[in-house]
Design a protein around this nucleic acid. Sequence first.
DNA 1: CGTCTAGTTGAGGGTCGTCAATAGAGGTGG
DNA 2: CCACCTCTATTGACGACCCTCAACTAGACG
Lengths: 243, 243
Amino acid sequence: MTIVRPFMQKLEQLGPFGDQERRLLESLSFNGTITFDAGQDLAREGERPSDCKLIVEGYACRYKALKYGERQIVSFHLPGDIIDLNSLLLGRIDHSIGALTLVKCIAIPHATLRDWIERHPRLTQMLWRDTLVDAAVFREWVVNVGRRSAYQRIAHLVCELVTRLRAAGLVQAGACDLPPITESDIADATGLSVVHVNRALQQLRGDRLLDLRAGVLVALDWERMRQAAGYDPAYLHPLAEAA
Amino acid sequence: MTIVRPFMQKLEQLGPFGDQERRLLESLSFNGTITFDAGQDLAREGERPSDCKLIVEGYACRYKALKYGERQIVSFHLPGDIIDLNSLLLGRIDHSIGALTLVKCIAIPHATLRDWIERHPRLTQMLWRDTLVDAAVFREWVVNVGRRSAYQRIAHLVCELVTRLRAAGLVQAGACDLPPITESDIADATGLSVVHVNRALQQLRGDRLLDLRAGVLVALDWERMRQAAGYDPAYLHPLAEAA
DNA sequence: CGTCTAGTTGAGGGTCGTCAATAGAGGTGG
DNA sequence: CCACCTCTATTGACGACCCTCAACTAGACG
């Protein structure tokens, strides 16, 4: 039971998995971890990282900043997620990666990954599949900000997070609590203003669908929230079944 | 100069390319093409296609339909684009693919692709890279519908299309005309209503940035349109340089 | 005890959606 | 050749959703 446990669990959901690959990933435990404070950037738009980062603890997000300070979060990431696979194949990254909480991660050098990819086609396919699931999430987010009301957008976002946390084995007990994200984060993820997020959240609270207090989101009524959001986890593919 | 020319041109932009791969792709010319009328679906959400489709002629889009008939287009595709690579690795597709014009495409059986992937790691990497560029476009679309005004959204969409058409060698002469898409398509791609798209387009016309008549978009003033949209093609990665 | 961040509230206004009606282009059939 | 139909574009009126600005509260932390 090493610190790469969440990562292995995720990859196991993405495809058949041999002892060879298992040993490869285990070896990562010896890399040592890097720590980022909440608010710090793990990487910045335009950079050319020489490694990919695997989250071991904490929550991060990918975002793009526009001039005048607006920003749009395009995805959230949990322990076990490997972000930045883009940089391996595309070089320059087109978005920044920010830490939402304290984040511990392992940096996997591109050289190592390139080596793995050459020698382990099965692993390659799993990583490729992972980026495809990522892309599927982006698509759903386009739908979310494009065609849903504020109320629905937030509900949908919460639904997705709950499903992914479940798939990652990060939900304990009945009341599944979500990562501590601020209303400002939700606003940036849904394309809304902070003020309006606040009001929509009050409605969701009033309707007893969810509750956000002291930075912790609690899903109260899963089925009604799913309905309200028009949420269908099929787009998460393997992660949907694992949840 | 075969019908797979646009596809090869695109892959050449995505990575080093040997004679071996070239011959592989040439062999596709013998597969015969399938034709779809404008408005028809090449594939539907939830299906499990047994092949991937390579567009040879015409324009298509990926979209998701919500209940009550709203829909959100999540990407446009041109000749040379291989859509549906998702289905190869994820099975079920989470979105539909519609033909915007008459579309001719080659169906590449999954079996063939699987064979290629096993034997040609370089080709694998190019296809993977292609899906990563796809994902980068989705990210930018999230930003577009999430944080830009109607006016900017449309300008940005047009900028992206022009860049990609250039990269695909599909822009002739000075006045580069775009594929015949309706205002309704633009509405579905930008998360706006048809009526509002119409008014925003009138403004863009009034400002002499672009013109849409008889279903053909014409970019009038590239630099000012870029400025207005806040457009930076960096997210298109290899395609940006090729344009 | 002051300062900082996150959350909350009210007022007012702008962007954008809905509904409904009209105009024009293209296609089809009598 | 013209009547008719359909699809796309267009316009006006009206209202809703959401944004901005601004002020205020509450908790965290030194």
